[in-house]
Design a protein around this nucleic acid. Structure first.
Lengths: 148, 148, 148, 148
DNA sequence: TTTT
DNA sequence: TTTT
């Protein structure tokens, strides 16, 4: 009965966060995160293996993501696996797996900015900002205001 | 480049392992694992939320799973997320996410058996067995043969 | 600045919880948990390696531990490392490391009891109880009432 | 019996690695890692809480640490808790807890260097180097030689 | 689609 | 002793 469903990821964002402000007042951010595993094959050649993850953040965390994360940002993520299931128009069962983020931390921003985008169309101009420290918000929905 | 892609699960098997012995000599086991989260909603009612995960194990671990795991078995799993992508007959992009198991441990079998199945059609009769201790294979010492 | 300090353990209690009810109203429980790693040495002999961990739980979790855990109970633990430092009478710097528990889950108690003790002196008689599902309480101190 | 003893840390090194090349040919590196937790107290003031961890790495990983890590380097660490026990001269039981590193990954080195030291006495001059990708050694493919 |  |  009591179970554990935990995901830990370190990787880089494939693009800027996509953020929606819902009529209910809730905020959702969707991120795509690449985790790359590097190893040598039998011939001794280096091989990179990249896995892409769909992340979903809500409310306070979504706002932090919107404000501070950009394409290329490196983050540590803790979350859980959630699979949505539905039927498509042909009546086939479909599934989509995503990571519901519980907490995240920006990495490698000693220099004061993680501006990983340099003028892409979708990226709003981003002035240099002090580095945020996004605390572990706890499990499901505890963080309800911005942590700084 | 260097990334982390780690999954930690504790849950119960939804059915007996499905094991295929490939011509290549490799062995694959597919498991379905339920992780159940329990919480109280705003009205104070207990709510159970079950997530189902598709697990894939190879070779030595697949054999251990085949021999010792059954519907209902409780296990601790460590693995990584892998998403396969392909095009279906209609030319639509499709994805399927599964957990590639790195290591697992049987839980709650101090009494010598975790026989969680009581006569299901697909389950071979399973006599009581001594409890296996499946070591973390991703830890220090690589498991390349059966660990007991 | 932003850091991660996370511990994940699965093991068995070495003795009954030691619980203190403080004047302040706080409750502290101290547990000792054994995690055993099993591997084969070079000669092919099985070797068991047991590590003992000092766990500390507060308030609601301490009460759950007091009520449901016993010597021998198998649990999944999530926490963080905390090291206390002080000077002893000789003026030497001393350190003591313990695990501050964030959440825990009882394992292997599908049958309704984790009574791992059979008559030890310090164990109160424990009638069979329904199995508790101790949910992830979130990070630091969110759980302030019993979760069931 | 079968247990889990896992530590996950993200933090910064307090000083350069201390590396010893043993007569046996083994190499040991000792690191001190700071993990800082940031939160607001009841008065709304930001509080930083830093925990210091003693890490121990062996052989290939020790060499990677020696070559690439410096005071200030930010790393992701996976390991296990190990407590040494002994008796001091007064016959008192003593314990010392450290983290035996299973794998680590350098973080935040998009700019091609993690030179966190700027001329400290103990630090050897370090020319800019290409960023290393230290694979998870405890994962799929065992690292028995330097990974690059 | 990221990162090195 | 780190980092922001």
């Amino acid at each position: 009965m009591a179970g554990v469903n935990k995901v830990i990821l370190v990787g880089n964002l494939g693009k800027d966060p996509e953020v929606r402000h819902l009529e209910s007042g809730s905020v959702v951010a969707n991120l795509t995160l690449a985790t790359t595993e590097s190893y040598k094959d039998r011939s001794g050649n280096r091989v990179d293996n990249t896995e892409w993850h769909d992340l979903e953040l809500w409310d306070a965390q979504a706002k932090v993501a919107e404000q501070y994360l950009r394409k290329g940002s490196q983050i540590y993520v803790e979350g859980k696996i959630k699979t949505d299931t539905w039927q498509d128009e042909q009546g086939n069962n479909r599934k989509k797996t995503k990571i519901r983020v519980i907490s995240f931390t920006m990495l490698g921003t000693r220099q004061g900015s993680s501006d990983g985008d340099s003028g892409g169309a979708s990226a709003p101009a981003m002035e240099k900002r002090a580095m945020p420290a996004v605390p572990d918000t706890g499990m499901d929905d505890e963080m309800d205001d911005l942590p700084f």
